[in-house]
Design a binder for these strands. Structure first.
Lengths: 214, 214
DNA sequence: AAAGACTGGTAAAAAGTTGTAAACGGCCTG
DNA sequence: CAGGCCGTTTACAACTTTTTACCAGTCTTT
């Protein structure tokens, strides 16, 4: 069971640590910081409820998802009362657990929404409503273009490498195998520059990357 | 630094109190009620993180913006965990800080009012009595549709992702694993749009989500 | 000045999203 | 227990965005 979950989440790109029993899990969760903890209510040595309670008691507010057997209503209530963020009843599909995990992470990382809007030249962008205008006229930007532009705005004046863009805008890690970034730069220029062939905002820095100047 | 900020915000019409060190700031924030607190992580006598932690620990939920030095990722994470609402990395322009302040204030003030009713186009909705009319004629909305519409109304103009809808409209009550959200959008459009196939209120933003415009 | 490396632009292929119809199951009501 | 309603899931065609491919032009370095 734990092994299957580990493999599943690893495949999904998560980094996973599995503990053999409740005590080991508690130690693990205490010693290192994790984004999320999944606890089975029935665990050898120390029940999931106890682990949860102790973590919370120690001021640890890592999101916790509890796994309970079907119908154990008591567990469910107890689990939530004990401080778990969500629970999943067995049997469950991996997808279901996955969905919960992502939901909990989402809620937990109610992070800051960064820049809300920006303007430069005669262009105005609102990253919340996904609207953009140039000289008062609406321009249509694709999601990727919005994200790229946002990254640029958040790094005005700095040179941004293609690697960085791939990291932050695409979420890829590793090398740019293709010319995708360049492509999107070109498209972005078509839309926000007065003279795309002689850009004033998105400047090419040969052999390095691109620089945004507002 | 603090002086420049005070002058800036005063000029912008805010009333500002500056504290000499962390301890004084904490006292000030505890004794009088403020709309917003700006904390430098590095403060004499009591770090910004501590001030933040103590304020939150005392049940004070005044919005807090943290100032951190560039690259102090740790601070950023800690700050958020400690309960700050946003953070700004130094060096920053006054305008940037200003923008954050307004964003945080906006967010903070928004959480208070729960919408009771709304109207847009020829549609009127009362979220308290769960009644809705379009062009004077009653239209039947399911509970889920009411909830979804309410969320939209509370976020007019913003793009709302499916994830956000799942969080706020579905919550704990079981997470759909498939295209349920889209389905409900379609149904909602059937009921509130003049031309469901060419919607004016619930706009899809490809690859991002939906946007409600009143 | 020439070779090699890098970039811009275009078109077409590939991948991913969305709208809609249809079907299923749960639940309540009559 | 049949009929309806609601929410969910599935399927598929239509559509949008993203990626790839390729050539020509530009910049660096030798």
């Amino acid at each position: 069971m734990a092994v299957a979950l580990r493999d599943g989440f690893t495949y999904e790109g998560y980094s996973v640590h599995v503990a053999r029993d409740g005590a080991a899990g508690l130690r693990m969760a205490t010693e290192k910081s994790h984004d999320l903890v999944i606890l089975d209510v029935m665990l050898p040595r120390l029940s999931g409820l106890d682990v949860c309670r102790q973590l919370r008691g120690a001021g640890n507010d890592t999101p916790i998802i509890m796994l309970t057997a079907r119908g154990q209503e008591i567990d469910k209530v107890l689990g939530l009362k004990t401080g778990a963020d969500d629970y999943v009843t067995k049997p469950f599909s991996f997808l279901e657990l996955m969905a919960r995990v992502e939901a909990v992470l989402r809620r937990a990382s109610k992070t800051i929404d960064a820049v809300e809007s920006a303007q430069f030249g005669d262009v105005e962008v609102n990253f919340k409503s996904f609207e953009a205008t140039k000289g008062g006229r609406t321009i249509e930007l694709s999601p990727r273009e919005f994200k790229m532009l946002k990254h640029f705005v958040e790094h005005r004046g700095e040179v941004v490498t293609r690697d960085q863009l791939l990291d932050h805008v695409w979420g890829y890690e590793g090398l740019p195998l293709t010319r995708t970034v360049d492509m999107h730069i070109a498209k972005l220029r078509q839309k926000i520059e007065d003279t795309p062939s002689d850009p004033r905002h998105v400047i090419t820095v040969h052999r390095v990357g691109y620089k945004f100047t507002g």
